Simulated scan of single mutants.
Amino acid sequence: MTDPVGRPDPPERMCPSTPAANATVFLGMITPAGRVAYLTPQLPAEVALATQAASDTPVESRYRLAGPCVTARCGFWTGEHCGLGERLVASYQETAGAPETTLPRCAIRRTCRWYAEQGAAACAACSHVVTDAY
């Protein structure tokens, strides 16, 4: 599809930290150190969600899931961009200093909302995020 000027539509932006109810992609596993071990190539969210019945902990505390960015239906949406991605990058840069130069392998980077808005700094912060499911 194209706009009236003939440019292609931008790709659908993905939230790299979505709750299970909105998940379409199994992005990674949370390691014991609290970091995300990314899965590539991407897997459907159903792979992670299938383990939910066998555990008493929320799936989001064990796995990182991604799904379509819901913009105005999200409490972090500022009206123009993702406020969570912005806050994560600012907080991470305060504590970690310079961003890592090698980006992790990520299955959604091309469509990631945080990466589109915050650049490579979002990738460094992203690997430390565990989605709050409570």
Rank of each mutant, 00 (worst) to 15 (best):
A33F: 07
A20G: 06
L43D: 01
P16I: 01
V25R: 00
A50R: 12
E12C: 13
L88M: 05
R62L: 15
V5R: 09
L65G: 01
G34I: 08
R113I: 13
A96W: 08
T18G: 04
C112N: 05
E117S: 08
W77G: 06
L103I: 04
T102S: 09
D9I: 10
A116F: 08
R105A: 14
H128I: 04
A125G: 15
G83N: 04
T57Q: 13
C82A: 06
A90N: 06
G97H: 05
Y63K: 00
C106Q: 02
V59L: 06
V59D: 02
A98E: 15
Q52A: 14
P8F: 01
L103V: 10
A122M: 10
R7D: 12
G28M: 00
S61L: 04
R105P: 12
T31E: 10
C15I: 01
T101G: 09
I30A: 02
T51P: 02
F76H: 11
A120G: 07
A72D: 15
R105T: 10
G97K: 01
A116K: 04
R110E: 15
T2W: 09
A37R: 03
E86F: 11
W77F: 14
E46G: 12
A66K: 00
L84Y: 11
C112D: 04
A124S: 13
C123D: 12
G6F: 09
L39F: 02
R87F: 12
T102V: 15
S127A: 14
Y92N: 03
P16Q: 01
T71K: 13
A107D: 09
R110A: 15
Q42Y: 09
V59H: 00
Y38C: 02
T2S: 06
Q52F: 05
E94Q: 10
V25Q: 00
L39S: 02
A23C: 06
Q52T: 11
C112I: 05
F76G: 10
G34F: 08
A133T: 13
A124M: 11
P58R: 02
E94R: 11
F76Q: 10
D56T: 03
P104N: 01
G85E: 06
R87K: 12
A21D: 15
F26I: 00
E80Y: 08
M29A: 10
T102M: 13
L88E: 05
T18D: 04
G119R: 03
A133E: 14
V130Y: 09
A33L: 14
E60P: 05
A37T: 02
T51K: 03
A33W: 05
E100F: 03
P8Q: 02
A23P: 06
M1E: 10
A121K: 07
H81W: 11
A54E: 10
C112V: 09
H81P: 05
T71Y: 14
G6E: 08
V5N: 09
V47D: 06
A90S: 04
V36Y: 01
V89Q: 00
C82P: 11
F76N: 14
L84F: 13
E60V: 01
T111E: 14
C112S: 04
R109P: 08
E117M: 04
T102N: 10
P10G: 03
V70S: 08
T78V: 06
A120Y: 08
T131P: 05
Y92C: 04
R64F: 03
S61W: 04
R110K: 07
P8W: 07
T111Q: 12
D132C: 11
V25T: 06
V130Q: 14
H128L: 15
G119T: 09
A122V: 12
R109M: 11
Q93R: 11
A124F: 12
L39W: 02
V25L: 00
Y115A: 05
